[in-house]
Amino acid sequence: MSTAASATGVTSRDAAHSLFAQTMQYVATTTGLFALGAYLGRDLHGAIGIIAFIAAFGALIGMQFAIRRSVGAAVALLSAFGLLMGLAIAPTLAYYAAADPAALWQAGGATALFVAGFGAAGYATRRDLTAIARIASWALIALIVFGIVLIFVQIPGGAVIYSVLGLLIFAGLVAFDFQRLRRSTDLASAPLMAASIFLDILNVFLLFLQLFSRTSE
Rank of each mutant, 00 (worst) to 15 (best):
R182I: 00
L167F: 03
R134S: 14
I148H: 07
Y162C: 00
G122N: 05
R180H: 08
G158K: 00
V145C: 13
Y123L: 11
G147W: 01
L113I: 12
A116C: 11
L143I: 07
I144C: 13
I141S: 13
Y162L: 10
A195D: 07
R183F: 10
I144N: 12
I148A: 10
F152N: 04
I161F: 05
I141M: 15
A139P: 11
T185M: 12
F152R: 04
G172N: 08
R127L: 14
A190G: 04
G119Y: 02
R126Y: 06
G117A: 11
S137F: 10
A142S: 14
G117M: 12
A190E: 01
G172F: 14
A195H: 04
G158S: 12
T111Q: 09
D186W: 00
G157F: 11
A120T: 09
W138K: 15
V160F: 01
A116T: 07
F176P: 12
D177A: 10
A175R: 03
I148R: 06
F176W: 09
A120L: 14
A112H: 05
Q179W: 00
A194I: 05
F118A: 01
A124P: 10
V153S: 01
A131Y: 11
A195Y: 05
A112W: 12
I197W: 00
A124L: 14
F170L: 14
I144Q: 09
G158L: 11
A171N: 05
I144E: 10
D177S: 14
L181Q: 08
A175K: 09
V145N: 13
D186Q: 03
R134V: 11
A124V: 11
A190I: 01
V164L: 15
D128W: 03
